[in-house]
Structure formats: C-alpha cells, structure tokens
C-alpha cells in the first residue's frame, strides 16, 4: 500500500470540513441583498415615504398585496407590461430583492 499523501488526522478532518462548508458554499452563491426597508426606500423617492403617496401616476405601495407587487415587477422587468419608466427601474432588481420589497410594503398599514 502506497504511503498516504496526507497525514491520517487530515484524512479525517478534510471530509468533515467539506461537509461543514458545503451548505455555506451553496449559500455563498447568493450575494447579500439589502433589506426590504433599504430597497423600499429607493422606491420612496417617487412612490412616497414608506410607499405612501397621493399621486395619480405613481401609486401608493403601502399595504399592497405582496403577490400583486411581485407579479407587476416581474412583468415590468420582462417588458410584458407597458410603462413609462418602470420597465427600466424593474431591471435593476433581482427576484430576491423584489420579494424583499414586496414583503416590506405589504406589511405597511
């Protein structure tokens, strides 16, 4: 039997470490995103502080149905829904960010 390339202790530790790190590596594929509040604050400059606006063209987002907002953003992003600027804005947010935005605004009363 050829001599092992690694000392016996490492032969045991490495697979154990790999098992430990594997879930982390899977998680690390997803870059961190901003909180729903931070992302929602970018919407506020047009849709009002905390999504509360009184404007016929830039509707309130506060209290909006979560799924309705997610679908609208996905449709804008894919150019399935016509708009003046939202097609371009929506392209700046990924699925997880859109969900975080929807979580944030749907919970505001």
């Amino acid at each position: 039997m050829p001599a092992p390339l690694l000392p016996r202790s490492l032969q045991i530790i490495i697979p154990l470490l790999a098992m430990l790190l594997l879930p982390m590596a899977a998680g690390a594929k997803e870059p961190p995103i901003a909180t729903g509040k931070m992302l929602g604050d970018t919407c506020a400059s047009c849709h009002g502080t905390q999504g509360k606006s009184f404007d016929e063209y830039m509707p309130s987002l506060a209290g909006i149905d979560r799924q309705q907002l997610i679908l609208a953003m996905q449709d804008y992003r894919a150019d399935r829904r016509a708009s003046v600027v939202m097609n371009r804005v929506a392209k700046g947010y990924n699925d997880r960010e859109i969900e975080a935005i929807a979580d944030y605004f749907s919970k505001i009363k």
Binding site: P32, G92, E97
Partner: peptide
C-alpha cells in the same frame, strides 16, 4: 447592504419629457 437609485426627468419642451432611470 446599500441600494441606490437615480431617476431624472427632464423637459425638452413643456409637453415633452425624457428620462433616465438607473439602480
């Protein structure tokens, strides 16, 4: 984590707008 936005509307005439929108 930060997130930033800029949307600028400009008028090329009173009834003619052009805009830029970036995240």
């Amino acid at each position: 984590e930060p997130s930033m936005i800029n949307v600028c509307y400009s008028l090329a005439g009173q009834d003619y707008g052009v805009s830029i929108a970036d995240i």
